[in-house]
Design a protein around this nucleic acid. Sequence first.
RNA 1: CGCGGGGUAGAGCAGUUCGGUAGCUCGUCGGGCUCAUAACCCGGAGGUCGAGGGUUCAAGUCCCUCCCCCGCAA
Length: 314
Amino acid sequence: MSLRVVFMGTPDYGVPSLEALIEAGYHVVGVFCQPDKPSGRGKKIVPCPVKQCALSHGIDVFQPVKTRVDGVEPLRALAPDLCVTAAFGHILSQEVLDIPRMGTVNVHASLLPQYRGSAPVNWALINGERVTGVTTMMTDRGMDTGDILMQREVEVLPGDNAGMLVDKLARVGAELLIETIRALEAGNCPRRKQDEGQASYFPLLKKEMGVMDFGKTAKALCDFTRGMNPWPGAYAGAYKVLEAEAEPWAGDEAPGTVLRADAKQGLWVRAGEGALNILRMQAAGGKPMSARDYLRGHQMEVGALIAPEKTDAE
RNA sequence: CGCGGGGUAGAGCAGUUCGGUAGCUCGUCGGGCUCAUAACCCGGAGGUCGAGGGUUCAAGUCCCUCCCCCGCAA
C-alpha cells in the first residue's frame, strides 16, 4: 500500500520532485505552496510552478498564509504518512512536523552542512565551488539543520549559471528523494547528524546584492555573474551582465574602466585583477544579447567607467 | 486597467518631433593590397519599415485596431 504523501514547495525547483513522487506511485494526497501573488507584466496572478503541476495531475492544492497557523488543520485532515518539502519557503513548526507519521523530508540543493539557507546554489557559484550537490534530510525546526539522509554530488560546469544548475540539481534531487523514501520504507535509510563545525549559512539574495564590484578579481566577477543569473542578475551600472569570462590583463587602468568596446573585440572591463570579458548582456529595456551585437548599434567610450556613478540603488 | 521601453536588410541600431530618394555599424558576396591578418581599400547583393484599416497627391513618419518582445515591480 502506497504512502500518503503531502508535498510542499513553490518554485520550479520543486516540480521534478513532485513529479517523481507521482510517477513512483506514491499517493500524493495534497500539495502545499505559497499563496498566489500578482506577478509578471500587467500584474496578472499566475499560479506558481508547483501549483500548476499539482493541478495538472488533479491534486488538491493548499495555500496557507502561514503553514504553522492556517496550514495545520488542512494538513492534519490529509493524514499524511510523510511530508516532503522542496524550496517551500515556509518555516514549519514542531506541531506541523509532528503530523506526518514518518516525518518530513527536505530536498536541499547543497551538500549539507555547507550552504544552509535559501539560496545555496547561487552562493556555491559565487564562491567558485567546483562541486555541489543535493541532500535529503529530516526537516527539524532549524534552518536546514536536520539529520542528513542521503547526498549526491554534482559537478559544477564552467558554463553553469544559477538557473541551469538549479534545474540540474532539481532533477538529481528528485531521484535522490525517491531513493530516500524507498529506504525509509524499508527501514534501512542511513541517517546522521550534521557536523556543526563544518556548517555554513548563506542568506537569501536581494536585488541590490546584484551590483558588481569591479574591485574584485575578474574570476570572482565571473563567478558572481554566474551565481546571480538569472535572478537577481549582476549589474554594472545600467547594464545587466549575463555571461562573462575572466581574461588576463596588465595595465594601470582603474577598476571598472572600459578597455575594449567594439563589435570585433567585444566588451572588456578592467577588474581588480585581470579583465572581465562581457559576452552577453542586457541594457535597460532591451533584450538579452551578445556584447558584440550590442556594440554594433551602441557607442561605448573606451577609457570611461562602465558604471560611472552609483545607480540610485533602491 | 500597476509603471515604462521596443518591433526598420542576416545581427545591432538611427530615421518618426515638423509626412517628400531607406541610412549607420557589423556580417555576407566579389575584387584589390599584404609575408600575413579579426587589419586596410574598392565594389555588389540584401528591406511587405510587426499586422490590418484610415487620412493624404504622397505614410517608416499622422489617426484607429490588433499581435509580439523586453525593463521595473513581485
